[in-house]
Design a protein around this nucleic acid. Structure first.
Lengths: 317, 317
DNA sequence: GCGATAGGTGAGTAATTGCCCATGAGCAAG
DNA sequence: CTTGCTCATGGGCAATTACTCACCTATCGC
């Protein structure tokens, strides 16, 4: 209790310091004087306010190039939602910008007073976006995970996107306590017969919107790195023409779901219908170019949040 | 044209630089390198982005003290809307904080898809809030000025709040081309019979929300400084017990509208009914304490946006 | 009780940023 | 063509901010 109150006080102070710094435009020295602390402490509070995302910064100006790219993307691929953020050449981050813009879009859905079913995939990009969400109270919505977060070794993955999200927005949530890939179609059937999983499957089918990461394949693929898939399985996949995956569903360079054993073993919830729902992919960066292009071509997603450079590739591809 | 395009390019660059600085977290040196300009130019673009309000900063954390004060104010005065922002002791500004919070509240109303009639007063505080509004497209709403902006000498006041607002949000707007005070009740009747004014009067009566400044009286009052009222008239007013004014309507220390000649000559649109509409006062600072207290007590306003220090006074008064 | 540990503090220092100035390009008026 | 004006630029410097280090304190598990 005391601990909790102290933490709150500290965040309160951070908020106040951040407000004085960013809104009132005082220097950290002035803030220190006003709040009766040392300048260093004021600096710490200000940076804490940023780190805890108490201070939100948003760009409120349509950068012409981004808008134009977005419009052309929308037309070319017949998309429901497009967001193009500026590129940051030189940054190796695969999430900066996407995370903020993605969070804004998720927040837009969450603000709806109508109850919504939001489906969510997994992955670093999505996790980064979720981390940008403010605390909200959204008991009217339901959030369903589209894919399992159990690794080959049985442990749960670090990127437990749905729990972080539910925690931030206080909504009912339906995880998928499954691996991404079952060992056989028969095992998948068994797994899917669990009642918990049944609920998730049913909800997934009625989702109003899905937010998904777009995975590239190959030995470096996050799917392998995160321990959802073995290198052997990955090699087999790329040999059979897979270009990318979304929630484990493998597709080829034309964006057609791969027929055959792999997708028959994917334990994820099927993606919501692109006719009724928005399926929005979050991704940027060279390594995702081909997977994104294929996903858009095959209409596996009908919305995208990406950056200028990736948008340029997708327009020329 | 060329000039216009150049200006847009510059703003685009500013937006991009601001994005890289505030969202991507790069230093100005890095931005300079990336954008191929000098560090100083990068700095200028970043600060231009701030000056032009392309970058919006907001505090997304309920500071406990502010929330609590807001809740107590709401109860004590039975208010529909209360917003309390942190105080910035040492700042002499009467608008910092209020302007941002006020703009956020105005924006909230403007975002409504339902057509709204927004009424708006005048004054420095309101002007500062309007200046914080982002560009929007709100053709569904109508904005009506509650009060004239013609000075004693016949010129229009600098604080032409309604025009700035309509300009920013692209809504139909209905100004009041009148002085604040007519020379006699009869003159007021004549002025009000003009068809332009008739429209404004009618709209004012159906307003869903009104945003108003709260004016203090006395020789230093903005009403005098801005040349809406002569010193003689002001003296007469304070002698007759006036404690403050909203849109020219004078009220005493209990918040009762003054009976008698003054208010009979006020040419403003009557304030919308507090039963059906929100009438939100924007004000903070010592000099407004008494006027605010009276306005709240008499229920001339049923919403307030103010700061901690003012809230504390109002709670103890 | 006691050591380990997390997290906070101030000092000092390096990095970053804000601002003033002199300069020069672009442009309209004379 | 010249003049006067506006506005962007880069240099330089002072102010401000970020980071590291050593130290301190409260809490927790043993």
């Amino acid at each position: 209790m005391a601990r909790r109150a102290e933490a709150n006080n500290r965040l309160d102070d951070a908020a106040r310091a951040g407000w004085l710094y960013y809104v009132a435009g005082r220097t950290q020295d002035e803030i220190a004087t006003v709040m009766g602390i040392s300048r260093q402490s004021a600096q710490r509070l200000v940076s804490l306010a940023m780190a805890e995302r108490l201070i939100k910064v948003r760009l409120d100006h349509p950068i012409a190039a981004c808008l134009e790219a977005a419009e052309r993307l929308r037309e070319k691929y017949d998309l429901k939602h497009v967001d193009v953020v500026p590129s940051d050449p030189g940054s190796s981050s695969t999430t900066v910008g996407i995370a903020e813009a993605g969070a804004a879009e998720i927040e837009r859905w969450l603000k709806s007073p109508e109850p919504q079913v939001l489906a969510i995939g997994t992955g670093r990009t999505l996790k980064a976006a979720i981390d940008q969400l403010p605390a909200m109270e959204c008991p009217q919505h339901r959030i369903v995970s589209l894919t399992g977060n159990i690794r080959l070794d049985g442990s749960a993955a670090y990127y437990n996107v749905i729990f972080s999200m539910a925690d931030a927005v206080k909504a009912r949530h339906f995880p998928m306590p499954l691996p991404v890939l079952a060992s056989s179609p028969e095992e998948r059937a068994v797994l899917h017969s669990q009642s918990l999983v049944q609920v998730a499957l049913k909800l997934g089918a009625q989702a109003n919107v899905a937010f998904v990461g777009v995975g590239e394949l190959g030995p470096e693929a996050p799917l392998c790195q995160d321990g959802f898939l073995s290198q052997d399985e990955m090699g087999e996949l790329t040999r059979s023409g897979a270009a990318g995956e979304i929630c484990g569903w493998m597709f080829d360079h034309d964006g057609a779901l791969l027929a055959g054993s792999f997708n028959d073993r994917v334990a994820s919830v099927p993606l919501p219908s692109r006719d009724n729902a928005s399926v929005i992919g979050f991704a940027k960066g060279r390594r995702k170019y081909e997977a994104l292009r294929a996903a858009l071509k095959g209409r596996i997603i009908n919305g995208i949040i990406t950056d200028e450079a990736t948008a340029a590739y997708l327009l020329n591809a």
